[in-house]
Design a protein around this nucleic acid. Structure first.
Length: 575
RNA sequence: CGGGGUGUAGCGCAGCGGGUAGCGCGCAUGGUUUGGGACCAUGAGGUCGGAGGUUCAAAUCCUCUCACCCCGACCA
């Protein structure tokens, strides 16, 4: 490809709205262009990278036994009603009406459609297992797109669905996919960490995310460097410290005047006890129902855990007026004596005794509140948010935290969808059972952005050889010399003939401009041709990742370059 | 949806005590240059996000509105 003919232009300055590194570099390199919030065009260079990523994913899916197909983007809304996910996806589902006023959805994912399809063709256990996938555009009306390609409303995703006869079969499919994903990240040069995850609106039970650790990541990972436990913070477990008060025996409940102490810190300070010696009350609205949450004063509520515990789809903090309508005195609330309100407790309230708790009247708290002696709860489970510094629930070591980009998510769906979509099969024993499903998603654009996020320097992008838009940047200097121009042209032709992907900088720009563009675009190997190298009948080669240059004989340069490229692995590292 | 911010040439920005728009980069033409973003000359390019209002006069003041970005809520 001749640079002078390439559509797209490198920019010295990134547009003001681009904040994340990947966003800035991808725009400056002329690889993507924004159309609307969370909607992007891929320019030729960016599209080449995306297609390479796609091909790697396709190869790994095929190797794992996947069969590629394509499902429609346009889906009848009824399918979403049938699965019940029109509710759980809620506003994120893009919907539209056709000319007959029939409601349709733009697919944010394809469990419904594929399960319907599989239902038509699978009748017997003999038809299973199946691994079906597609690579296709998804639509999600995200509340807040951000970070360039990191979170968008229209994106290309590979989604694979597994169909098995039982849980054991699902485990096998899940492992295959997990391995295929690891292979993909390895080939992309992405150090991805697998972590336990919440399954969110997709549903199902077990799920894992693949995370690339980088500061710009929007997810927080809690991990234990001792035993290897790692989980998304939404999901993370930790060992809650047991608080032993001086008096282990429950003491009689006492009312205590605590004027003006509306916060946990305020009360604890006023009474002179640690915050862990108090009970915190937090109020939520879950699908419209008022929820009273109790948790030990030193902990915070994990809203994802709470949502899962309540099995609700919409969860938010209750407003002040909702709290007072429920008859609760904010700042002095506790479940003691509370009636007609659903109370959910974190199990931390049993890890201690004689707590300070609200007296449900302004200016007063109770001393020596104990569960279950003094109050009841509707149910109790783990709804606490893990922090770095907490203890690992596996091994007791200190947990750490890191920011990460979610570059893949795999789910064990079980029969959650297949039951609703009536996808049953006949087992060997003649009984009809729902197909056991898994789903496995990976967003290509986000993958591309993640690569840039963790592989760049002050000059620009550093693509791994496996996905670089071109392998070689041919950079002749002093192109106005007819002799040099003609040799450069010959080299270009011979590289192309040799099957090497080459971007030929045929512009008559100065050396600095060309070198800077080569670095910005992140092409792995740069070849410089100038009177200086010509004098030695050679061409200069330089890897994007290295400082040193080397001279290659001009004669059969193509073969020499091939040799160089083959000497590198797909990441362009090592010999 | 809550909070904050920005919309002026392709990109980055200035102008905003009202008088009809300018700088840098980029772009075009010509010339001199060239191993890490050269220089000179000439030139093209703008309904100042949109609508309404105030005024003799609005990029500038007022009202409404739209878009985009960031934080949060939310989210495979």
């Amino acid at each position: 490809m001749r640079f002078s003919r390439l559509f797209g232009k490198t920019l010295r300055q990134a547009p003001a709205e681009a904040e994340s590194v990947s966003h800035q570099l991808l725009i400056r390199a002329g690889m993507i262009a924004q159309v609307a919030a969370g909607v992007y065009s891929y320019l030729p260079l960016g599209w080449r990278v995306l297609r390479k990523i796609e091909q790697i994913i396709r190869e790994e899916m095929d190797k794992a036994g996947g069969q590629e197909l394509t499902l429609p983007v346009l889906q009848p809304f009824e399918l979403w009603q049938q699965s019940g996910r029109s509710v759980s996806f809620g506003q994120s589902l893009f919907t539209l009406k056709d000319r007959k006023e029939h409601k349709l959805a733009l697919g944010p994912t394809h469990e419904e459609v594929i399960t319907k399809l599989v239902q038509r063709y699978v009748q017997s256990y003999r038809d299973l297992p199946l691994l079906l996938y597609q690579i296709q555009t998804k639509f999600r009306d995200e509340p807040r797109p951000r970070g360039g390609l990191l979170r968008v409303r229209e994106f290309i995703m590979k989604d694979l669905y597994s169909f098995d006869v039982d849980e054991a079969g699902l485990d096998v499919s899940y492992k295959k996919m997990s391995q295929a994903y690891k292979n993909i990240y390895a080939r992309l040069g992405l150090p991805a960490l697998i972590v336990e995850a919440d399954s969110g609106a997709i549903g199902g039970k077990e799920s894992h995310e693949f995370m690339v650790i980088t500061e710009s990541g929007e997810d927080e990972i809690i991990y234990c460097s001792n035993c290897g436990y790692a989980a998304n913070r939404e999901r993370a477990q930790f060992a809650k410290a047991v608080i032993t008060s001086e008096e282990k025996q429950p003491l009689p409940l006492e009312e205590l005047a605590t004027p003006g102490t509306k916060t946990i810190e305020g009360v604890a300070g006023f009474v002179g006890v640690p915050v862990s010696q108090t009970l915190k009350a937090v109020f939520y609205s879950a699908d419209g129902e008022f929820i009273f949450v109790v948790i030990r004063g030193d902990l915070e509520v994990n809203e994802t855990k709470l949502r899962n515990a309540l099995k609700c789809s919409e969860l938010r903090l209750a407003t002040e007026s909702e709290v007072s309508e429920a008859g609760i005195v904010a700042g002095f609330a506790s479940p003691i004596g509370i009636k007609d309100v659903k109370v959910v407790a974190d199990d931390s309230i049993t890890l201690g005794s004689n707590f300070i708790a609200g007296a449900n009247k302004s200016g007063y708290h109770f001393r020596n509140a104990n569960y279950p002696r003094d109050f009841r709860v509707d149910f109790m489970t783990d709804i606490a948010l893990a922090h770095s510094g907490d203890n690992c629930s596996n091994c007791g070591s200190r947990l750490s935290s890191a920011q990460g980009i979610e570059v893949g998510h795999i789910f064990k769906l079980g029969i959650f969808i297949s039951e609703k979509m009536e996808a049953f099969f006949l087992g060997r024993d003649g009984t009809s059972r729902p197909i056991v499903m898994g789903c496995y998603g990976i967003g290509l654009g986000r993958l591309l952005a993640a690569i840039v996020e963790q592989s760049h320097d002050g000059k620009g992008i550093i693509w791994p050889l496996s996905v670089a838009p071109y392998q070689v940047y041919l950079c002749p200097l002093y192109l106005d010399s007819p002799e040099l121009a003609s040799i450069a042209e010959d080299v270009y032709q011979s590289l192309e003939k040799g099957g090497i992907e080459v971007l030929y900088d045929d512009r008559s720009e100065s050396a600095g401009v060309k070198f800077n563009d080569a670095d910005l675009l992140g092409i792995p190997l740069r070849l410089t041709l100038s009177p200086r190298t010509l004098q030695k009948q050679s061409i200069e080669a330089k890897w994007r990742t290295e400082k040193e240059t080397q001279l290659l004989p001009l004669e059969n340069a193509s073969a020499e370059v091939s040799r160089l490229l083959k000497g590198k692995n797909w990441l362009g590292k090592g010999e």
